[in-house]
Simulated assay, not measured.
Amino acid sequence: MDKIENHYHHCASCRHFGFREQDGKKQPMCTRLGYDTLPHYQFNCWNPKPRVKMAMQKKRRKMLLNRKK
Rank of each mutant, 00 (worst) to 15 (best):
R51Q: 12
E5I: 00
T37A: 00
K49G: 01
M54K: 11
D36A: 08
G18D: 03
N66L: 15
D2G: 06
F17S: 00
H10K: 15
Y35I: 08
K53N: 08
M63G: 09
I4S: 02
K49Q: 08
F19S: 08
Y41Q: 02
P48N: 10
Q27C: 08
G34I: 01
L64H: 09
Q27A: 13
F43Y: 11
K62W: 09
C45P: 01
C45V: 06
M56K: 02
V52Y: 01
T37R: 03
Y41C: 04
M29T: 06
I4E: 01
K3D: 10
Y35G: 00
N6H: 13
A12K: 03
H10R: 15
K59H: 13
V52R: 01
D36E: 13
D23L: 12
A55L: 06
R20A: 11
T31M: 14
R51C: 08
R32N: 04
K62P: 01
K68N: 10
K59Q: 15
N66A: 15
R60N: 04
C45T: 11
C30L: 09
C45Y: 08
K69T: 13
G34Q: 04
K25Q: 10
P50Q: 10
W46Y: 10
L33T: 10
H9N: 08
P28H: 03
V52E: 01
K59T: 13
V52H: 05
K68R: 15
E5G: 02
M56Q: 08
Q22H: 14
Q22T: 07
H16A: 04
H9A: 02
E5P: 02
Q42F: 07
A55S: 10
C14Y: 06
T37D: 05
K68S: 14
S13Q: 07
L33R: 11
D36R: 06
L64I: 11
C45R: 06
C14I: 01
Q57H: 07
P48Q: 09
L33V: 02
G18N: 05
V52L: 05
H7P: 04
M63F: 13
L65W: 05
Q42P: 01
P39S: 14
N44Q: 13
N44P: 09
N44R: 10
G24Y: 00
N66D: 14
N6I: 07
N6W: 04
R60I: 09
A12I: 05
K69H: 14
R67Q: 15
A55M: 07
F17P: 01
A12M: 09
K59R: 13
F19E: 09
D2R: 00
K69Q: 10
P50H: 08
M54W: 03
G34K: 03
F19D: 05
K53T: 05
T31L: 15
G24E: 02
V52W: 01
P48D: 07
F19N: 06
W46E: 03
I4G: 01
C11V: 00
K68M: 09
H7N: 09
G24C: 05
N66M: 14
N47E: 14
W46I: 01
A12T: 03
P39V: 13
G24T: 06
P48F: 03
R67M: 07
Q57F: 03
